[in-house]
Amino acid sequence: MLVNISFGSVTIPFKNTLAVLFTNETTNQSWHYIIWDYRVPKAITAVLVGSGLSLCGLLMQTLFRNPLAGPFVLGISSGASLGAAILIMGASAFSSVFSFSIFNDTTLAIASSLGSFLVLLAVLSVALKIKDTMSLLIIGLMFGSITGAIVSVLSYFTSSENLKQFIYWSLGSLGDLSWLQLLLLGSIISIGILLSVLSIKPLNALLLGENYAQSLGIALKKSRLLIIIATGLLAGSITAFAGPIAFIGLAVPHLTRQIFNTTEHKILVPAVLLYGAIIMLVCDSIAQLPGSASVLPINAITSIVGAPVVIWLLVRKRKMVF
């Protein structure tokens, strides 16, 4: 985390970073500003995003008993994209009528949360009706396709400037969060983690399959709902504030299972939180391109760094733990 904070477009020596962080030394006012109002919030965001998404991935992979499931299989990120797309691409039309712009970071967060929340509601109402979890997976993917298609149609008709703005959002960003926004994100993620901890027992029972879980006294529908709500809170809030960050949620649970060689969720839940945070920090540090003034999109880095690691682990162990 310290290393992460010391990297950035403006070069601040590591020693001075520590000094600013721990001794309140204010020899250089702009360094102080950069560190406290930009880099520390960004590092905390990275921790929250990394752990939250990884936990979502674990929940979904166990619930659907599918190693390919991730935080976004329920269509949450597509819903967020739709919200963001409507705002970004609709805002210009709106502002030409009302002569002021409604587009800023806060409205973007609100729009994408609304989008993901609507999709989540739709998935939940379906989840209450159907008995089969696998059809839930397919329905989630279908919702994703629908919203994806609407986004495509919107972007087809929009100006290139708006399109660029949307693509910029979809690349994900850990920066630009105020302390207040961080507090909000942190609280929502805490609730999500709490719900997940409450689901540890049902999650372990689900390792045997749904029928066995039920015969062990697990209230199946209630647990499923709890897991979906936890995922919705985690993935929804993260996507709203940091954009649809790919890969972490899919990869970290696999990585953790390989390393710990267990499927026991009492170990996996905290381990996934920890690894998610570490990997996100590492990815973000790489994205800062230490020593240079430019910053790469975080979404690209997570996949470029993460995919080879997972491939390497699988090849080395030869057998996937799932």
Binding site: L207, G209, G217
Partner: peptide
């Protein structure tokens, strides 16, 4: 559900979901 689980246990034909236990 919990009370019933102390009365009846099951062995089914379906394979268990995770063979890594």
């Amino acid at each position: 559900p919990t009370k019933l689980a102390t009365k009846i246990s099951l062995v089914l034909t379906e394979p268990i979901a995770s063979k890594n236990l």
